[in-house]
Simulated assay, not measured.
Amino acid sequence: MSNALTRHIAANGLATLTLTRPERHNAFDDGLIVELTAELAKLDADPAVRVVILAAAGKSFSAGADLAWMKRMASYGESENLEDARKLAKLMHTLDTLSKPTVAAVQGPAYGGGVGLVACCDMVFAAPEAMFALTEVKLGLIPAVISPYVVRKIGNSQARRYFLSAERFSADTALRLGLVHEIAPQDEVTVLATSWATQLLNNGPASMLAAKRLVAEVSNRPICSELNDLCAQRIASQRVSPEGQEGLTAFLEKRPPNWVKH
């Protein structure tokens, strides 16, 4: 693992990935994108990992694309840019579809692709110092790769504003838009994120994954007989699953389920 990223897995199953390029405001380049994607895949495949926390060292969460990387991309042809963009798309997809809950601790500014990382996480906790911006159009670019995740979080109307204006917006605004779930003092953000991540350990791992997938399946679909039947199928399958049976039995027997460690 490079000096740009650290990983820590606690005994209780909480894994923390920390961006550690504070001198570059945790901006990412092609190397860090590949490394972060690989580390997320490893955590996803590790049965000992229950929840993943994404954090950053220094004053910034992530400034998005690294300047040196941007200079290299400017000299690339379209095919090279396409391959480069696909690597970033793979990172966002990997984070978004991780089978474990993801919790972001945003202690400082997040710009461009940094907003994409935030939008891909299930729960987001931010400090008042955590400014946000989608500044791509100022450079004659567009936030294409991260757009599905950001638009899903803040909606079409707000995306039109912030994609076009490239303006900075505060943590309070991010909270109102739905990009952030809760705000805490800067020195308490990681503590709060860890506290919520620890609470998630009380929930069934398979049921949390099924719940994540359920949100994706029912989002923006009309409520109709087909959707109602899909939802009925999902709960029926979950009830007869080993985890569903254990959870219901533990509740009736007034004991903790077997996924809760003592």
Rank of each mutant, 00 (worst) to 15 (best):
H93Q: 13
K153M: 06
D84I: 08
N228F: 02
E182P: 01
L40C: 09
L141W: 01
A105Q: 02
L214K: 11
I235Q: 06
E217T: 13
P257C: 11
L36N: 03
A174M: 10
G116E: 07
R168G: 09
L40W: 05
S237L: 14
P222T: 11
E167I: 00
V137W: 04
Q233S: 08
R221W: 01
A144H: 07
Q186M: 13
V34D: 14
V215F: 14
F169G: 05
G114L: 10
P185W: 12
K71P: 00
N220C: 09
S219M: 08
Q158Y: 15
L40E: 01
A232C: 03
M123S: 08
A210Q: 07
A68I: 14
A127V: 03
L141E: 12
G58M: 08
A63W: 08
T37F: 06
L141Q: 07
P128T: 04
L192T: 09
I53F: 00
F132P: 01
K212H: 14
R160I: 09
F251D: 13
F125A: 06
V191F: 09
S241A: 10
V124W: 01
H93S: 15
Y162E: 06
L17T: 07
S60W: 13
E136R: 03
S237Y: 03
S79T: 14
G114Y: 06
A85N: 14
K42Q: 15
L17C: 12
M1S: 14
L54T: 06
V106R: 04
L88P: 00
V34T: 09
P185Y: 10
V106M: 03
K87R: 15
T97C: 11
I9V: 15
R7I: 13
D30Y: 15
G112E: 09
V191C: 05
T37D: 02
S237H: 02
R86N: 14
V137Q: 11
P109K: 07
N203M: 12
P47R: 03
T190E: 11
P128M: 10
E243A: 04
G13L: 09
D96Q: 00
V106A: 04
R86Q: 13
N81G: 12
K254A: 12
A236P: 02
E246S: 12
A193H: 11
R255T: 09
Q233F: 03
E243D: 10
F163D: 00
T194I: 06
I235T: 11
A4V: 01
M70S: 03
S165I: 01
K261Y: 07
V52M: 10
T190Y: 12
G108D: 14
P257N: 14
T198W: 01
G247D: 07
R152W: 04
